[in-house]
Amino acid sequence: MAKSRAFDVRRQTGFVPLALLCFAVLYLPIILLVVYSFNAGQSIAIWEGFSWQWYVKAWQNEKVQDATILSLIIAASASVIATSAAVMAALATTRTRGFRGYTFVFALINQPLMIPEIVTAVALLIFFAMIKVATGYTGLMYLIIAHSAFCIPFAYMPIRARLQGMDLNLEQAGADLYGTPWRVFRRVTLPQLWPGVLAGSMLAFVISLDDVVITEFVKSAGQDTLPTYMLGQMRRVVTPEVNAISTALLAISVALVIAFYLLSKSGTQTNRE
């Protein structure tokens, strides 16, 4: 009996169905969530026809509007602050032979990735409560600083990767051709670092936009972001309005993640800015 197919060394029984199941599991809930945001009825399980009504409702909901604006303000500020700090930190920590304190710096920068968010959230709740009592200030800065802190490692990673992949000779060539350190940074380093900076700031933006736990603990009264607003809503009867808000947030995140992917793909192929 002749074999119909060549022996495939890579095949493992059952792996392909399991993998496809994995993708199905990952996407099915999200797809259903998106689909039912367009449901004409109240239900999130019975399809009653297509409608934009939940989007309109969400759009007209003043609390949603306020939360959206707050989310965007915090994400934008935290992204700018975290990215600037990350660029400087990356410049100081890459392309150098280890220096005293390197382990400390590395651990500190990556700390938000290692420590459970709830612990940091509790710590900030206590710490900021002390400051709030001492100064009386209850504004947005607490949230912005807290978000900046946990966004730093996310901004740092792609920038650092980009810097490490960069040819040191290029900066030396710049210095050799009469460029002062600042001009070399501006004309040679930064243009090449740019995709990394952009990618890092987008990651930071997404991470800030999506945060629930730390925001929930740090926020003062009336400072709801979209995620904390939604968390509050989930205790009640859920209407597709939450689906609509979720879909909008999803769309922003997915767009940014795909942009990030394309940016990091462009890799060494830098174009003129």
């Binding site: 809930p29 999200i30 999803l250």
Partner: peptide, 18 residues
């Protein structure tokens, strides 16, 4: 990675609905 970078609350919510 796309689901990973999207909101954790939303993904939890999606499971809840199902």
């Amino acid at each position: 990675m796309i689901p990973f970078w999207t909101n954790l609350l939303i993904r939890t919510f999606a499971v809840m609905e199902i």
